[in-house]
């Protein structure tokens, strides 16, 4: 059997007529099946965003304390752990973007909200180019190549 699910999952509010066996999670949860593992990794990207947000806060804080503090923070960001983090983040962001947009429209026309989507080719070119440019920009900033 698969691992147990929350015992209240899909349990009706009204009393049940017969005794039931408790629900189980989908088989392979959470790493036994490649799709579910990718989903868990996708969810884990929250940690990456969290650290990215912390870095942005640090930069904003340093900016408010004057040029010396700003320079110090930039130097700190040029350390090896920071560079490793950004390399991981670069790969992660692109992978998360790929996974997210790969879900759209196996059958339905791709459309979110009131706007019609651009042609597929244009959509992918703009999206991936945008992701890569933003990431290269951040990388250059952290490597001290700009600013």
């Amino acid at each position: 059997m698969s691992s147990p699910a929350n015992p209240q999952a899909m349990v009706p509010k009204a009393p049940q007529k017969t005794r039931t066996a408790p629900p189980t999670m989908p088989q392979g949860w959470w790493a036994g099946q490649s799709r579910l593992l990718r989903y868990v990794l996708f969810g884990a990207s929250g940690f990456i965003y969290f650290f990215a947000a912390l870095m942005i806060l640090c930069l904003a804080c340093a900016l408010s304390r004057g040029p010396e503090e700003w320079q110090k923070t930039l130097e700190c960001f040029q350390s090896t752990p920071s560079r490793v983090y950004h390399a991981v983040a670069l790969i992660w962001f692109i992978w998360v973007g790929l996974r997210f947009f790969s879900f759209f429209g196996p059958a339905q026309p791709r459309k979110i909200g009131p706007m019609k989507s651009p042609p597929d080719a244009l959509f992918y070119i703009v999206f991936y180019a945008g992701m890569i440019v933003v990431n290269i920009g951040i990388a250059a900033l952290l490597w001290g190549k700009i600013l």
Partner: peptide, 22 residues
């Protein structure tokens, strides 16, 4: 072959669907 995951099992391959209706 197993009953659908995430549902309480009523018997063998039959699951409780009442919660879905709710």
């Amino acid at each position: 072959i197993a009953p659908l995951a995430n549902f309480p099992i009523v018997r063998d391959l039959v699951v409780e669907l009442e919660a879905f209706i709710e």
